[in-house]
């Protein structure tokens, strides 16, 4: 209960936020943490704004509801900022991570955030377009999340991606995803 980390993901359906929420949870599980990952339950509508949630804790998690007061907000599509209240409930001392070319200061101003919240920016779409040859920002955003929050080491993500993606995809795809995660980890700017 004390160490509960609550991550809220904002994205458009099809950008892989649910997969990202799940990957983070699965990685934490391998480190023997308690986890929860779920989409905001609803019909699938490609392009519609969606939310997904990840909870991580050292102790068993008993709550079953949406995340109202997240420690971390991850935004996979910056156009959502204009139409969704992405900072709703974000706790003081929390962090918001945005897929954008803009620097943190600009995003902070756009969201009207105070100094209590850390703002992190990474061009996850640019990284994805180069590494994965398509705009699939979900795995790079995990790299940024790990760097900003320190919920676990980058190596844990790489190990988990190697294991799970290795079952479904070619080595080329696995390597491209690992490269994207690593680049985002290195390039994310925090302020």
């Amino acid at each position: 209960m004390q160490q509960l980390t609550e991550i809220r993901w904002h994205a458009r359906a099809g950008q892989g936020a649910v997969t990202a929420a799940k990957l983070v949870a699965e990685t934490a599980l391998e480190l023997d943490q308690y986890i929860q990952a779920m989409p905001e339950y609803g019909p699938e509508r490609m392009g519609a704004p969606i939310q997904a949630f990840t909870r991580l804790s050292e102790d068993p998690i008993e709550i079953h509801c949406n995340i109202e007061d997240p420690n971390v907000v991850v935004i996979l599509d910056e156009t959502l900022i204009a139409i969704v209240d992405v900072t709703r409930g974000l706790v003081d001392g929390g962090a918001i991570i945005v897929n954008t070319c803009s620097p943190p200061a600009v995003v902070r101003r756009a969201l009207g955030l105070g100094e209590g919240v850390r703002v992190a920016c990474v061009d996850a779409s640019g990284i994805a377009n180069e590494a994965l040859k398509r705009d699939m920002p979900n795995t790079p955003m995990i790299g940024a999340l790990v760097k900003v929050t320190g919920v676990f080491e980058l190596e844990a993500v790489i190990a988990h991606l190697t294991k799970t993606f290795g079952k479904k995809f070619s080595q080329e795809v696995v390597d491209a995803n690992i490269a994207a995660v690593t680049r985002a980890y290195e390039e994310v700017q925090v302020a």
Binding site: L29, Y34, I35, A37, M38, P39, Y41, H64, C65
Partner: peptide, 12 residues
């Protein structure tokens, strides 16, 4: 089991 909350949520 509770629809979506338990059916679709990934849990340990």
């Amino acid at each position: 089991l509770d629809g979506f909350i338990t059916t679709h949520s990934i849990d340990r």
